[in-house]
Structures are given as structure tokens and as C-alpha cells.
């Protein structure tokens, strides 16, 4: 049998393929179910690390700065992401508060920190301490980060509030918009490449 790295199995229909070298812009698709098998890694480890660091800075800003300010008869009211989490907790919607905190704060933060850590070592072609466990954690974190959904939600909330209040967007919303852009760039990255790119340490 060929070495396991030379083979590829479609996750959606279990068809087995021999791996082919891809060039820029290539996407390998399953001939049976048309699912994406693999795509060319356009971003180097350095480029990914740069993106993660940028995303981290933007994420900190998005969480520190207020998102929007409402005005009514001279009174003003603004909130940050944590303001939302606290408000939902106080209003007896603890489940929602936890959901918001997890999908918009803790999971994205974990994802970025883990990636930053793994990529920092991958630059030198090494596996970071805890590589195996962290890669598994990253896999399970996958679909549970929802910052991009929140941006759309904020837009809807602004339009809804606009009917009754004076709405002033604050820097936080721009930081979130930038974060969404970065997430979109990163969406096409298959993190599994890190398994192949860093050699197994000799036991």
C-alpha cells in the first residue's frame, strides 16, 4: 500500500483518491459527490500568522470599543460586547448570555490564541508543545465561532433602532467589520495542512 499521506478520502462519500500536487488556484473535487477534497494553500505559514495577529488586534478593539450609541431626547446609551453579555444575564436570559459569550468571545479568542501558538512554532517547522491536543481542540471549535453573524445582527439592530432613536455607529462596529473580512480570508484555509507541514518529532 502507498504511504497514508499519498491517499485522500472524501469525507462526504468515502471515495478514495490518490493525492495530486495542486498549483495556485486549484481545488480538488470529489468525482462522486462534488465535495471539496483539498485546495492549494495560497497562504504561507508566515502569511497566516500575520493574519491571525491582525485579527487578534482587531478582535481586542472590537471588544473594547462600544459598538453603537443610541440617542433619545438628549440621553445617550451605548454598549460593548460584554455589555450585551451582562445585560442578557441580568434580564433572566442566562442561556442566551452564555451562548453569546461562547460564540462571540471565548471561542473566537481560543481559536485565535491556539492558531497563533501553533503557527508561531510552525514557522520554524516545529510542532508546538501540545500540538496534537490543540489541533484536535481546533477541529471541534470549528463551526462555533459566529463573529460574522453578529455583524449582520448589529446591522439589523441598528436599522430597527433607527426608527425610534438617533443611531451613531461607534468604532467597535468598524472593528467588527474588519474582523469579518479577516475571517472571510481565513475561511478557505484548511488547517489540517499543519499536520503535513510540521514533521513528527522523533520519539
Amino acid at each position: 500500500m502507498a504511504s497514508p499521506e499519498a491517499l485522500l478520502i472524501c469525507e462526504h462519500c468515502d471515495t478514495v483518491y490518490r493525492r495530486r500536487a495542486l498549483v495556485r488556484g486549484d481545488v480538488a473535487r470529489c468525482a462522486c459527490c462534488d465535495a471539496e477534497l483539498e485546495r492549494h494553500h495560497a497562504l504561507s505559514v508566515n502569511a497566516m500568522l500575520a493574519l491571525i495577529l491582525t485579527a487578534f488586534i482587531v478582535f481586542v478593539q472590537a471588544n473594547m470599543w462600544p459598538i453603537v450609541t443610541l440617542g433619545l431626547n438628549g440621553q445617550h446609551s451605548s454598549t460593548t460586547l460584554w455589555g450585551m453579555i451582562v445585560a442578557m444575564w441580568r434580564e433572566q436570559a442566562g442561556v442566551v448570555s452564555v451562548l453569546v459569550a461562547a460564540t462571540l468571545f471565548f471561542f473566537p479568542l481560543m481559536k485565535m490564541s491556539l492558531l497563533g501558538w501553533l503557527l508561531w512554532f510552525a514557522r520554524a517547522g516545529r510542532r508546538a508543545p501540545g500540538f496534537r491536543q490543540l489541533m484536535v481542540t481546533l477541529h471541534y471549535l470549528g463551526p462555533w465561532t459566529m463573529s460574522e453573524v453578529f455583524v449582520l445582527g448589529a446591522l439589523v439592530a441598528i436599522v430597527k433602532a433607527h426608527t425610534y432613536f438617533d443611531v451613531t455607529p461607534d468604532p467597535g462596529i468598524y472593528a467588527y467589520a474588519a474582523l469579518t473580512l479577516l475571517i472571510t480570508i481565513f475561511a478557505g484555509v484548511d488547517l489540517r495542512q499543519l499536520w503535513d507541514e510540521t514533521p513528527e518529532p522523533l520519539a
Binding site: 446609551s77 450585551m84 442566551v96 439592530a157 433602532a161
Partner: peptide, 12 residues
């Protein structure tokens, strides 16, 4: 869910 959370925090 996010719309409700944001409006709750804002409209007070």
C-alpha cells in the same frame, strides 16, 4: 438572538 441581545443592552 444577537439582535435581541444587542437591543437589550442598548435600549435602556
Amino acid at each position: 438572538v444577537f439582535v435581541v441581545a444587542l437591543l437589550t443592552a442598548l435600549v435602556r
